[in-house]
């Protein structure tokens, strides 16, 4: 989440709660709604690393609030993040390891593992369908994110089918 917060702060200085709202508004229901504590912990670490700085802003009738802004070092970190290629998704290796290794021990059979995993993926897909239906149809960012998750899941299912053909 560090770099997401830096990117938002590059736009304008903000306090923690504003950052939470900005994330939720941008990504809609596809975002795992970070709790405010997580955001403050992350901001604290960014401050310690010199990537952001906080200033206290006085408020009438309330305790001071901390407004964070990006430092030069923070801007450099952000630029590096933007400029470098992003790692692609890896194979879901935990299931594959299970698929290959578990039958060796005699505690599971591959066909049953694959069948159970397929049902699990389809249940996830159903959740994504429902999430897409619930999402504001004007929120393209959120819809694209959900579509991306669906395409990954489809690839996982296709791969499962290949495993079933060759291993089961």
């Amino acid at each position: 989440m560090r770099l997401h917060l830096l990117a938002l702060l590059a736009k304008e200085p903000a306090h923690g709660y504003e950052l939470k709202q900005a994330l939720e508004q941008t990504f809609g229901s596809a975002y795992p709604s970070p709790n405010i504590g997580q955001i403050y912990v992350t901001l604290g670490r960014l401050e310690k690393d010199g990537l952001v700085r906080a200033v206290d802003v006085e408020q009438s009738n309330r305790p001071n609030k901390k407004v964070y802004y990006l430092t030069g070092k923070g801007r450099d970190a952000l630029t590096d993040w933007v400029d470098e290629p992003t790692e692609g998704p890896r194979v879901r290796d935990e299931f594959f390891m299970k698929l290959v290794l578990a039958p060796l021990t005699g505690i599971a059979d591959r066909m049953a593992l694959i069948n159970r995993q397929r049902r699990h993926y389809l249940a996830l897909m159903r959740d994504l369908n429902e999430l897409a239906e619930r999402t504001d149809q004007g929120n393209q960012v959120a819809l694209l994110l959900i579509e991306g998750a669906m395409l990954h899941l489809q690839a996982d299912l296709d791969w499962l089918e290949r495993c079933q053909e060759d291993l089961a």
Partner: peptide, 15 residues
């Protein structure tokens, strides 16, 4: 296909 409980670990956490 099992009905999953919405919430933790569900599709609401695509990221």
């Amino acid at each position: 296909i099992a009905r999953r409980r919405p919430g933790r670990g569900g599709a609401g956490e695509v990221i």
